[in-house]
Nucleic acid binder design. Structure first.
Lengths: 232, 232, 232, 232
DNA sequence: GATGAATGAGCTTTCATTCAT
DNA sequence: TATGAATGAAAGCTCATTCAT
């Protein structure tokens, strides 16, 4: 042991300082800051970073984990408030989900880097932790969703809740990447031929998610009509 | 004239040699090769690369353009064969689309880099060309789709064809990234907690796209019922 | 021989086109343009440049030769008009010389590169031509100066005219370099500690040259007093 | 702390190692060595160079600063020993100054690059430091010179000491450049037409400086005759 | 636990020059 | 004569990571 025995809490505290610094720099710049910058911003030395993270990428995956953590919490809350009626449920979920995305401005910029950049230099252990978090979160929320929406899970697709959530995330990530432009190129977006792509993610996402959910929930309802439906 | 008279076609040929080399290396490695490697693989000098491409990123965006070119051609063909009936149309399109994706194994790995990597160091002109291709392709196919599916475009969403295609692409891109694993990490995928994520993109994508289309096409049909529907 | 037999005049014409292009670009940029740019500006191909110049540096040495050619002509004229009286001669020469410098704005920027850059990659032959031009010009003007200023040349320093002219040039070149600032750094020139260096070449040169000449001409007069001096 | 505790002195030591390596290579080759060569010669890595210098040019400007530092020290000493009598003062200063130049063989080769090469890629801060050193040195020595030579500074030219020193430096720099030949071309110097230029800087400089100073000091004496001059 | 000096592979890019046509 | 495609050495610089202290 070194000068100080570092408790787990102390360790997490220090880790958190690096994460805070990294997050602030990333949000500011729009691109991954260097390790030197992160250390400086955290008021510690470059080498110290490597006492808490195995690679630079691990830092940003940790940030991403924090984002997913929050997202799952918000998701869970949104599911509990889900109305029964498909149309209503879809639009309400879409709105709530969209608000969550806006409340987590680092989520998508980080998620967009996950595959192409972050996972390229991630130690196996960190990779496992990250993916496990996603898996557990998806399964948990998926199961709850299935229990809340009768008819969603069928024999053919027993994990329909999980599937819907996965698709929701995939659509979000893909749409964000398709519509995000490097800052430097915003000017050209107003050229006539590019107008079709000049859709703002912020205005597209809610309708898209609503549509996605509506399709699935409608089908669930068809397979499991409300009990009083026949009475009419 | 130079060492060889280089016609436009000759120029394209040379360009193509670099592109072929770059594609082969990228497919092999799974990550962007260096310019030096590309030149070497093409049997030409490093400096020569820069006679044909302004930056390294331009090379891979050019590859991506080729992929999109093919994709739009395939898309166009798929649209022409679209059955009228929504369920049939959805499943047939999903199958055809999926086959196209499998036939273009470089499309998604490149597309996943577009946002995070390629567009970071792309000359404005190349950026414009790339984005214009996408915009034109989307609009063209979108309009054709609208003309083929009565009721798809409505007053509220006059570009519903374009929108559906954009969502199709976004879902594809997002799903691929959510499910793609770095080669090095495939082993851990079999751990129990990760099983939920051990869905293969290849087995998920068809159903997902079918579902997406089904939702939209069903709604279109509701708004524009077949003429003989009432006769029964 | 090729397509055309090129006469000497034709050859010089073409050469001149490159020189004009090179001069214009150099004046515009303040630094040596690339061979590609020169060729393009001249409306000819890169390779063609090398039919007329052995190296890039030879181009700019040729420009410098043109400048020296003009300088020697102007110098010659100035010498012919030199008054007898030392004070008057010095001030008149200094003024005339300064005007010549201002009329040849490319002379000093090129001369400043001669030693550090141009002569580094100059074929022996071009080097010889350049230096010979200088030597002949100096000797010619020096001898004329000696004949016009009695007492200048002495037994001890038989080439005093030549020497004075060499010193005149050296002082000019050195002063220009000492006082020239890269454009990018003009702002800092106003800082208090730098004020002593914020002398403009344009306002320093005339007095400096006058002073230099005055010292030499006075001494010459002392050694060879005007014939009627004793009569008074 | 790092591998070694690096005090300011330690840092200067390391910096000095790079400077020594750079100086040795420059003297040997006669042209700027590459950063890679400097690092190798210093027995350290390329990247390490950039921990001590922002650009390659900064290295050589630092060397030049060392040279100027020494020059100003020598200058200061020379001034203190200046005899009163102009002719004597001029010749003694010229000799002392010349010896200093010979004792600093890197000064002029570096100074000749300053304008054309070194200042082209110099960070503003380094530029400021360099120019400030020159300004302060000139002013300091100039004022001392004025106090030692009565009559040198007049109402018309209150900074005559500074001016004389600036001219001294300019003449030196210009003369060196006018007479310096690339090593490769020394052979041709013996050709008859080039003989006039085959003056060695080493044999010209002393007389030139003496002459320059003599002119100025004589004039100062005229304006401020020694007190006992009239008594005779 | 913390440091930060050192590393050095790695990168993209430039451009004077050549030479087959 | 003229071309311009091709060259490829050379360069400066960055930055994640290591490790002796």
């Amino acid at each position: 042991m070194g000068r100080h025995v570092m408790t787990d809490a102390g360790r997490d505290l220090r880790r958190g300082e690096f994460l805070d610094a990294a997050r602030a720099l990333f949000r500011e710049r729009g691109e991954l800051p260097s390790v030197a910058e992160i250390a400086k911003a955290a008021g510690l030395a470059k080498g110290t970073v490597y006492l808490y993270f195995a690679t630079k990428e691990e830092i940003f995956v940790a940030l991403l984990e924090e984002e997913f953590e929050k997202l799952f919490v918000a998701l869970s809350a949104a599911l509990e408030e889900l109305p029964e009626e498909p149309a209503l449920a879809s639009s309400q979920f879409a709105r709530s989900y969209t608000e969550t995305l806006f409340a987590q401005p680092d989520l998508l910029p980080l998620a967009a880097l996950a595959n192409a950049v972050l996972e390229q230099n991630l130690p196996t252990e960190a990779m496992r932790r990250f993916k496990t978090q996603l898996a557990v979160g998806l399964v948990t929320a998926g199961k709850r969703l299935e229990s809340l929406v009768p008819g969603l899970a069928t024999e053919e697709s027993p994990q329909a809740g999980e599937t819907l959530l996965l698709r929701t995330y995939a659509m979000t990530l893909g749409l964000w990447q398709a519509l995000a432009y490097p800052k430097a190129l915003l000017p050209i977006l107003n050229e006539p031929t590019l107008l079709p792509l000049n859709r703002q993610f912020t205005s597209e996402i809610e309708g898209t998610i609503e549509s996605l959910w509506r399709g699935e929930l409608d089908r669930a309802r068809l397979q499991n009509p409300p009990e009083d439906a026949g009475k009419i």
